[in-house]
Design a protein around this nucleic acid. Structure first.
Length: 948
RNA sequence: GCUCAAGUGGCGGAAUUGGUAGACGCGUUGGAUUCAAAAUCCAAUUUCUUCGGAAGUGUGGGUUCGAUUCCCACCUUGAGUACCA
């Protein structure tokens, strides 16, 4: 008896033992280590690497990793040399804020968190090549982030050649011919100088000018300052006018900061989207963010001044409809051109708008406000005077901060004109503008517009630009919404800049002296003077003799200089990490060796969240283009194909407290009770929405002596689908799922939930379905007396099931439709079970099909079938159509398109014979009930439809 | 406001080129096994029905022999974005 029990025990599916065994095997044998030398074609599968937070992983996090792991394993079966690495984006705000609260060094908390992540990831059985792991906060790694920063500093962007080039080439142009004829990306307000003037300038003055051309530059710019976080933020880090992290207010402030001249790459970033396989939604988001608009720049002379106002317009064809101009309140000219009479009103208005935060201005788009400056501009063609107003509907940060207002053609201008009783000339032939502006470009001819009369939009635009060029008062122009990205952060836990200052001018530290390591500080807060945390470091100065970081008191501004106090933003390290993984060994040499870069090229499949659309995914593309231009990498785009996995949501559990009491009423009995909804830990609720009252009583003290009003002896909870979060008590930990059901169950269930890209709720109850499937799978191979797989010839049905499954699974994986292959496996195992299949010729290939999804059980059964190698080395089974050929077809017979019954007929039956057989059938006669059919449609092999 | 995506049983979802709507799983119901429970197995499960059938994929139209699938309008939900000149 005892012996039988033990024997029986051994024959059961013990997932915990099996999974631990194979995880150990993979680690010890380095099963998934990728080689940079292989005859196989390469394939690079990458996940967006995680920020290791203190909370660890919940079941929502691994979704994308499971999908990419399935794909990576599939590609290995298909004969590819697969690179599938993982690492950590380990610089960031949470570790720093924790450090501020506790004094604990962020490096220590980061280390601890990484250990937790690694344990959690390992238990899910991913096929990562951990030998290539990267951590952005490691000096070995950020050495090269600093190095790339230097490359950006040493580059300018040539618009003629459309690429970044060495800044020294620009310097030699300046010294030989000045800057009058260069066509390069630069600041807007550049002074024109000759070679003589340039050569006569001091080195410091030259450096100052060069900063206006470099691809990373130091400049006083208006930045988004977040007082609560004590740092500046990039545009993509602000959502609805508040900080993405924490939701704090953000104000505009002028500060000297490092910026990245990403605007130089606007057109290439836009064009590149057509060459990559990303979702349309994501491409559209990036297109909107880049915000290309084609139009013209027009210059207006200000009457009585030497000044000119440049505007950008997408509608130069409407130039004769201009009846006023509007400047942003922050526009430089405002103070200069305002007349004495209007001075008080203008200043009051500016003061009022300055107080309003960006968010208020955005929220309140309906209130029309503005004030007349008293000044007039001259219309370029009619020479009529045009009143110049200021108004906060014009943004200083877009275009030139000034618009030519055409009230008949733009609703905002129209509203403004109506509000202030400004004239609204109509330049559209036969269009009524008494109620609203006419903003369309189509089906209209221009009128009251001198030489543009009678033309359509296209023609008039061309002509207007031509005439403006003749006057020297305008030209065709393309404008981009994309702004340069602020690159300084006033934080501790980020990459230090490889920069020191001589007389206030930034100097790069030579690459061979990198990395410049983060200094120690006693507190992680800004200094009393408001300097960033690095301002607290005592050893933070650069000695140009020894080329080392030395104590601050050695600063003499002759040989020892102060170092930069800002650090780099979170996206610095993540903009190039995919290249670092390519390098196997000797990583100190270069950021990635030439051979490795040549072999792996770029990421074939990238999986991660859609929230990075305008941040990481844009910046990474920008840096890759720069590295390509400067000859360091061979590719123009980092990620060939990209998939955004949807979020897994939680299913919160709700109990109902009768208001003012300690009584809790079951969901079905709420009736007329006044109740409050209270969320409780979902892990106490079973598949039937019944809560474990004993567990609840122990969970929190207020429930220990509470009274529960039950229905049918049970307490039923309400359910709500919402984001998985500690505060809703709906977080499910993968550790619990793995120990209770196993990693293979977790992997299958995450895929089974629904389409990868879709948002979908997690409900632990459903996991018994896939877990039951794995048990059935096990039983198909292992009976009470051990493995019951034989060398018997497979039956026709066995082969049909197998090949149907091969076809479907292969198609599913290639379409990233992982949820449906899980169903397919279930169907296959159900069928083979019914067929009592024991044939190795069928059961072994089936394991290979399942192994990407449930690798542990597949490895175990594969080895029990007698293989000594890992199943990951097995070749994907070949699909053979011949096993699916049928001799009969069960035809659906429909009447007016509605299926009424089915009829089994031979596959090779002719169209006429099918029709005859069907029409003679008793059910057809009954359906027709004496009516004469008007038409009979027969599609052989598909359907019969009788109309009438 | 604009752009995009999506609406299918009690629930997650399937139907890949227009051709048997609801695969697969959860839950529910009934049964077998068990002293009992767990586990396992079997059956049923869109709705209505006079048990012959009939209706049915957000709503209303259209194209078609035939529409969850294509077209038009509308409703709802979600995401992104916004005085962008």
């Amino acid at each position: 008896m005892r012996f039988n029990f033990r024997k029986n025990f051994k024959m059961q599916y013990h997932f915990n033992d099996i999974e631990a065994k194979w995880q150990k095997y993979w680690a010890e044998n380095e099963t998934f280590k990728a080689s940079n030398n292989s005859d196989k074609p390469k394939y690079y599968v990458l996940d967006m690497f995680p920020y290791p937070s203190g909370a660890g992983l919940h079941v929502g996090h691994p979704l994308g990793y499971i999908a990419s792991d399935i794909y990576a394993r599939y590609k290995r079966h298909k004969g590819f040399n697969v690179l599938h690495p993982q690492g950590y984006d380990s610089f960031g705000l949470p570790a720093e804020q924790y450090a501020i609260q506790t004094g604990q060094h962020p490096a220590i908390t980061t280390e601890t968190n990484i250990a937790t992540y690694r344990r959690q990831l390992d238990q899910i059985g991913f096929s990562f090549d951990w030998s290539r792991e990267v951590r952005t906060s490691n000096p070995d790694y950020y050495k090269w982030t600093q190095w790339i920063f230097i490359q950006l500093f040493e580059s300018y962007y040539c618009n003629n050649e459309n690429k970044a080039k060495d800044i020294n080439e620009l310097v030699s142009i300046f010294s030989s011919e000045g800057n009058a004829n260069v066509n390069v990306a630069c600041d807007d307000d550049i002074e024109i100088f000759s070679a003589e003037t340039w050569n006569a300038k001091s080195s410091e003055a030259q450096q100052k000018i060069l900063l206006q051309y470099r691809l990373t530059y130091l400049a006083e710019t208006e930045v988004n300052w977040c007082p609560a976080l004590g740092t500046v933020l990039a545009n993509d880090e602000i959502v609805n006018g508040v900080s993405e992290r924490g939701g704090h207010t953000v104000v505009r402030k002028k500060m000297t900061q490092w910026s990245m001249r990403i605007s130089a790459y606007a057109e290439r970033l836009l064009q590149g989207l057509d060459t990559i396989d990303w979702t349309d939604a994501l491409k559209e988001t990036q297109r909107n963010w880049i915000g290309k608009s084609v139009g013209a720049s027009v210059t207006f002379h200000v009457n009585g001044h030497d000044d000119r106002i440049d505007v950008f317009t997408t509608r130069p064809d409407t130039i004769f409809g201009v009846s006023f101009m509007t400047l942003a309140p922050e526009h430089d000219l405002v103070s200069k051109i305002t007349t004495v009479e209007q001075k008080a009103a203008v200043e009051a208005y500016i003061e009022k708008t300055a107080k309003r935060s960006e968010r208020d201005r955005m929220a309140d788009v309906k209130t029309i406000s503005g004030v007349f400056t008293g000044a007039y501009a001259e219309h370029p063609f009619s020479k009529e005077p045009i009143p110049i107003w200021i108004g906060d509907y014009v943004l200083a940060s877009y275009g030139t901060g000034a618009v030519m207002a055409v009230p008949c053609g733009d609703q905002r201008d129209y509203d403004f004109a109506k509000h202030f009783n400004i004239e609204i000339p109509n330049i559209f032939d036969g269009i009524d503008i008494s109620e609203e502006a006419f903003a369309s470009k189509d089906n209209v001819k221009i009128a009251n517009s001198d030489f543009l009369n009678g033309m359509n939009y296209k023609k008039a635009t061309k002509r207007a630009i031509y005439e403006l060029e003749q006057l020297g008062q305008g030209e065709g122009k393309t404008n981009y919404r994309l702004r340069d990205a602020v690159f300084s952060r006033q934080r501790y836990w980020g990459e230090p800049f490889p920069v020191y200052y001589v007389n206030g001018m930034p100097q790069m530290i030579e690459a061979k002296h990198l990395p410049i390591q983060l200094p120690e500080v006693e507190k992680y807060l800004p200094t009393e003077e408001g300097e960033p945390p690095l301002g607290r470091a005592d050893v933070w100065a650069w000695d140009t003799n020894t080329n080392t970081v030395v104590a601050n008191d050695k600063v003499n501004n002759e040989t020892v200089f102060p170092l930069e106090l800002n650090t780099m933003p979170g996206w610095a390290g993540s903009s190039w990490y995919f290249f670092r993984y390519m390098e196997e060994a000797n990583r100190d040499g270069v950021f990635a060796s030439e051979d490795a870069l040549k072999y792996w090229e770029n990421v074939d499949l990238y999986i991660g969240g859609a929230e990075h659309a305008t941040g990481h995914l844009l910046y990474a593309r920008f840096w890759v283009k720069l590295l390509k231009d400067r000859g360091f990498v061979n590719v123009e785009e980092p990620f060939k194909k990209l998939i955004n996995q949807g979020m897994i949501l939680g299913t919160s559990a709700i109990i109902y407290r009768v208001s003012g009491t300690e009584k809790y009423v079951s969901k079905g009995l709420i009736g007329d009770y006044g109740v409050e909804e209270i969320r409780v830990d979902v892990n106490m609720v079973n598949a039937s929405d019944e809560i474990d009252i004993e567990a609840l009583k122990k969970w929190q003290p207020q429930y220990a002596n509470a009274e529960f009003i039950l229905e049918d002896g049970k307490y039923m909870v309400g359910r709500e689908v919402e984001k998985m979060s500690k505060r809703w008590f709906n977080v499910v930990n993968p550790d619990d799922i793995c120990s209770q059901y196993g990693a293979d169950s977790l992997r299958l269930y995450e895929m089974f939930l629904g389409p990868l890209e879709q948002y979908k709720p997690w409900n632990t109850a459903g996991i018994t379905g896939v877990h039951g499937f794995l048990k059935k799978l096990w039983k198909l191979y292992v009976g009470e007396n051990g493995v019951n797989v034989t060398d018997v010839e497979p039956t026709k049905d066995n082969l049909k099931t197998l090949h149907k499954t091969i076809k479907k699974v292969q198609e599913d994986i290639e379409n990233f439709s992982f949820n449906t292959s899980v169903s397919t496996f279930m169907i296959a195992v159900n069928e083979l079970g019914k067929q009592k299949c024991t044939s190795k010729a069928v059961l072994e290939p089936l394991l290979i099909l399942i192994s990407p999804y449930a690798p542990h059980i597949a490895e175990e059964l594969y080895s029990q079938l007698g293989s000594s190698e890992s199943i990951s080395t097995a070749v994907f089974p070949k699909f053979d159509e011949s096993h699916l050929v049928e001799s009969n077809k069960n035809y659906p017979i429909s009447f007016n398109g509605k299926m009424r019954f089915t009829l089994e007929l031979p596959m090779d039956m002719s169209k006429d014979d099918i029709e005859k057989t069907v029409m003679a059938h008793e059910k057809t006669i009954a359906q027709l009930d004496g009516r004469e059919p008007k038409k009979v449609i027969v599609v052989p092999g598909k359907i019969v439809n009788i109309v009438g």
